[in-house]
Write a protein that binds this DNA or RNA. Sequence first.
DNA 1: TGTATTTATTAATCTACATGAATGTACGGG
DNA 2: CCCGTACATTCATGTAGATTAATAAATACA
Lengths: 154, 154
Amino acid sequence: MKEVKIKKGQIIQRKGDLKSKVYQVETGLLRSYSIDQKGKEHIYMFAPENWIVADTVSPESPCELFIDALEDSIVIQIEKDITTISDNQKLINRIEVLQKRIIMLMSASAIERYEHFIQTYPDIVQRVPQKMIASYLGITPQALSTLRAEIAGK
Amino acid sequence: MKEVKIKKGQIIQRKGDLKSKVYQVETGLLRSYSIDQKGKEHIYMFAPENWIVADTVSPESPCELFIDALEDSIVIQIEKDITTISDNQKLINRIEVLQKRIIMLMSASAIERYEHFIQTYPDIVQRVPQKMIASYLGITPQALSTLRAEIAGK
DNA sequence: TGTATTTATTAATCTACATGAATGTACGGG
DNA sequence: CCCGTACATTCATGTAGATTAATAAATACA
């Protein structure tokens, strides 16, 4: 459990790594993402101040996600095996976010997902390039650009 | 914390209900699902024996999901506010499942998601109608039918 | 400060999957 | 045992969003 500085662009976890850790973001902005067979990135989650980033896989199995910094950041690094993840209110909050995300992915159009995103994370919209928002929403940057033009021109 | 019998088809929680509970499935099979603006159902999760079904929204806010029984079932009903949800290993397992589900929804085709589903939940495939699997995968029953024909005929 | 590289926009085409409709099949209750 | 309803399949058509490509704009950085 120690504080670590991470430079923008620096990757702190890769798919396949063992003993992945939990990171509590103090300042800055991280993201976790997967890369599919075609080499395409899919952002799983943004983690600004006070969020936690972690790859939740069973301990000792290789991790699924990459994690890197979108801004210079300071994080607290927590070992997973120690049951420091004992704050189950945080876990429940996390589950709530994921539940909402799954429902949105299954039942909402790209426009609806975008509008939900800017309402839910208004600050993040300002801080990351559009292509990353597209990646989070599960669409291409081109589709996001077009969709934004539609919203603006109505 | 008491045992409850639920008949097939019986709805035990509706969207908008307050004080939703946590259900531990003893025998049988439940599902949780959302209904979108167009009235379309989207299955969020199946819950066979030993699984937990719950709508994880912050306590006292109205819930998002419907829960009903796909088979006659026996469940243990747990009040949420009591911090009986203290088993955080279960919460972490749940997060793991959700993480995988999000990544699949974002990066895999319908065929890939179906193949992943039958590998991961081989027993559930036998126990529910296809249209429910389609709903879980985020596709229509017609699309699932076509896709199965493709897989069979190759 | 100028040049290179990433990012955003726009448009044309393509494709996975949705929608709607018709037909067949299985199931469950009287 | 029969009938009605739910479920599965197939096909024709529609559409959201992907892909490719070309250009413009913003950013980094030497």
